[in-house]
Design a protein around this nucleic acid. Structure first.
Lengths: 249, 249
DNA sequence: CGATCGTTTGAAAGGTATCAAGCGCGGTGG
DNA sequence: CCACCGCGCTTGATACCTTTCAAACGATCG
């Protein structure tokens, strides 16, 4: 892991602006935050289950997964994270990490020292609420994954994940026209969807043969968006993409 | 639904005290909150998916489920809630409910008007953090459900749910000696675990025949706790039951 | 050019769903 | 008080989705 000092928390501010309206003081407080940027190579663990980290992570570039160790040597991916996400806000409140955070691609992250994050929260209720909202959306996505894993067969499950991913990436400008980069392996897809790699492969073939998606070398495209949504039983409501946020000040 | 005015937010205070240390001012502010208590009969929806509620719900007595509508007429239970839980905190932040909250038993709840909750948050950072923490724990449980549904077979899945439920109920004094009341039907268990009612039934028989549990008329007992934990691959870490909370003030 | 990783294919085994039907008990009404 | 009813639980047989095992393929890389 390489770290370096950085000035300016532009990406973090943009992220928070999506969650709540910041005033100048808050923007300035964020901008003056002593921030460290770290880069991780694919497969490297940013935070490990059992760690007691002293900082939070905001993803700037790249893709990460949150996973838990299962039984004997297994691993279960519990969520994917994209630029703009803060995947480990719980570390502010719970001492020991109950999950691991892993870089799926080369990933640049902002390290926010806990003391700085706490000071920010103490200074600004709006920032506290923005963090809380980030937690709420992550929870809503997790609930939808519970539905996905519990109720839908392989085809619908993968279709749903693709819809969710495209929808989330569109918000941060990383998907246009239902097309995005989503560089996960079929094995990782399987660990996330509760399916064997082999069945993921066959499911992808089915989605492709139905003309619903194309996916090569990590480039995903929904060829028939409405049909893909229908197959995946996808309703983006839970993502709170149109934030009719209640004003909290 | 019947409502009545109530004075004193004892149960809510006890709940929050588990999440954070309250000072006298905060305790008093909570105690003076104009609170309404409502009672719901089994099967009744406390809040419906699509609603725009003006209040939050704190469970005082009884059991609830949070569920989502799936595809054609299906229902997926995403979480169970026990006394002390505040299952719909997201309604403070997101206008439209993306889930339904249903009473599984006769249930008494505290209705906290959003304006009151917001005033409380504005007055006390500690209460804000307590709510946020409640959200974080709910998220951790949801992630563990993702693991449960994605990675474990029926036997382990049900065993894990029973362990989790007993552990959570012990915290609020509703389980002693690995024994508790957990009055859900096998159908509801199936909707939560992504299994057919029939397979739930066979799984319960297997758990019983192995001498791991007894379960009659909603009374659940873990007969061999350690073995049940092993079968369910249960590690209570994610529940944050021993709150080595970081002091946030 | 061998090695490795990710993907793909085939065949067999296994876990779970579905269909169909019977059981048992508490509640209701005659 | 008893017959009936309905809901939740239980059982058996079959079908289906998904896993597992085994192996080959293709690309990238040193």
């Amino acid at each position: 892991m390489m770290t370096s000092l950085a000035h300016g928390a532009g990406p973090l501010i943009r992220k928070l602006e999506r969650l709540i309206r910041l005033n100048d003081d808050e923007r300035q407080a964020l901008d003056q935050l002593p921030l460290r940027i770290a880069t991780f190579e694919p497969g490297h663990e940013i935070t490990r289950q059992g760690d007691r980290p002293q900082h939070c992570v905001a993803v700037l570039e790249g893709f990460c997964s949150v996973s838990k160790i299962v039984g004997e040597g297994g691993r279960s991916i519990v969520s994917f994270h994209i630029p703009g996400d803060i995947p480990d806000l719980q570390s502010l409140h719970v001492a020991e990490m109950d999950v691991s955070l892993t870089a799926l691609t080369k990933t640049r992250v902002l390290l926010i020292q806990h003391e700085d994050a706490r000071r920010l929260c103490a200074q600004s209720a709006a920032i506290t609420h923005a963090f809380w909202r980030e937690t709420l959306i992550a929870g809503a996505i997790a609930k939808e994954w519970v539905v996905n894993l519990g109720q839908r067969d392989a085809l619908a499950r993968v279709a749903h994940l693709f819809c969710e991913t495209i929808a989330r990436l569109e918000v941060v400008g990383l998907a246009d026209d239902r097309r995005c980069h989503f560089p996960v392996t079929q094995e990782q897809l399987g660990e996330a969807m509760g399916l064997s790699t082999i069945h993921i492969n066959r499911t992808l073939q089915e989605l492709r043969s139905r003309g619903l998606i194309s996916w090569e070398r990590g480039d995903l495209e929904a060829l028939r968006w409405e049909d893909l949504k229908a197959v995946g039983d996808f309703d983006p409501g839970y993502l709170s993409l149109a934030p009719d946020w209640v004003v909290l000040r």
